[in-house]
């Protein structure tokens, strides 16, 4: 192959990368707060201590809030994103988006041997204080945002959420599936946590875990037969998972906001710790499609039949005009 044709073939991925909806360069600001929170598992009335991101209420909540994954942030490709973080916790917290390019200002400590160690990937909001983070010219795709301080501890304590930037022209509708885990033993004594003993017992998608006998969570992306659905996978857990869409194949098109040169047609995909993936699925039938972790994080506090399982709901196009049937269909 001569060099000219090789260079031409190299250009194809570049063309694909810009095939998003129109890009408007702008700035937008978001406000988050890191707060004490509680999550009550489905098999127990005893809540688990969590830390979480919430939309900044303007002042710190007086008591722990109900934990959920951080609020979904929505950005525009090419824009400058600024997130202001209010820290309502008793230790410093910071914010990183691993898939977005950034200039970092790491925070270091000096250990007993005089070695410098990075404690936080970037600058922090002190306890009770605020900090501001800016990403210029943000990339399109699906991303995780999470704490960059004591990450082994603060991320598994619950300080994570998802950011979606832009939309793929192939898929008018999208769903987000944010995988994560909870090890209650580490949460009871967060300050003294020894990360390598991490043994999660709860396996969540979008902050919820299916527990056997209870209603299976339905993820409704307003998906229609004949339309492509974009599935945004993100894994804020510390372990890898392997989502399977039961039955059909998907086209995996991007990871960490980077479009692949060629889509990968698979019914399952490795979703490593910290990874985000975008997949396009073209449903051909209506109904609930099971999507679950084939790494078999399909238990809830040890009991089989729970864990990382959701239904993706697909309806016929005309059902949108008959709300009653839509409800029954779920």
């Amino acid at each position: 192959m001569n060099r000219t044709s090789l260079l031409k073939s190299l250009r194809i991925p570049v063309l694909l990368l810009v095939a998003f909806f129109s890009v408007a360069s702008s700035s937008f600001a978001l406000n988050l707060a890191a707060v004490e929170a509680r999550w009550t598992p489905p098999d127990s009335a005893t809540p688990i201590r969590m830390w979480g991101f919430i939309p900044d209420p303007g002042s710190c909540p007086a008591s722990p809030v109900a934990w959920n994954v951080g609020p979904l942030q929505i950005g525009t490709p090419g824009a400058n994103l600024t997130i202001t973080l209010r820290n309502c916790l008793s230790e410093p917290v910071s914010l990183v988006i691993p898939g977005q390019n950034a200039t970092l200002t790491p925070q270091e400590i000096t250990d007993g041997q005089g070695r410098k160690r990075v404690r936080a990937f970037t600058h922090e909001a002190p306890a009770g204080g605020t900090a501001s983070y800016t990403w210029n010219n943000i990339k399109a795709g699906t991303f995780l945002y999470q704490s960059g301080s004591s990450p082994a501890k603060q991320v598994h304590m619950g300080l994570y959420g998802a950011l979606k930037v832009g939309q793929y022209y192939e898929a008018p509708n999208d769903v987000l599936l944010l995988f994560s885990e909870i090890d209650p033993a580490l949460h009871a004594t967060a300050a003294a946590a020894t990360p390598l003993s991490y043994r999660p017992k709860y396996f969540l998608i979008n902050g919820k875990t299916y527990s056997s006998g209870q209603q299976i969570p339905v993820v409704d992306g307003n998906s229609r037969v004949t339309n492509n659905l974009l599935i945004r996978f993100a894994n804020a857990g510390l372990m890898s998972h392997t989502p399977v869409l039961q039955g059909p194949h998907m086209k995996i098109i991007a990871e960490d906001g980077n479009r692949y040169p060629y889509a990968r047609e698979q019914y399952s995909v490795l979703l490593a710790a910290g990874k985000t993936l975008d997949a396009i699925w073209h449903p051909t039938d209506s109904g609930n499609y099971a999507l679950y972790d084939r790494s078999l994080s399909l238990s809830s506090n040890g009991a089989p039949g729970g864990g990382m399982l959701v239904y993706l709901n697909v309806r016929f196009p005309w059902i949108m005009f008959i709300p009653a049937i839509t409800g029954a269909g779920r």
């Binding site: 200039t103 790491p106 990075v118 082994a152 990360p195 991490y198 510390l238 710790a273």
Partner: peptide, 26 residues
């Protein structure tokens, strides 16, 4: 345009591997 002194990181995203046995930040 990276400034001299800028740091990026290559790290385990299995964040529990950021330790030397029980010692954090490792």
């Amino acid at each position: 345009n990276a400034a001299s002194g800028t740091k990026y990181f290559l790290y385990s995203t299995n964040l529990n591997h950021l330790s030397n046995d029980t010692e954090q930040f490792g």
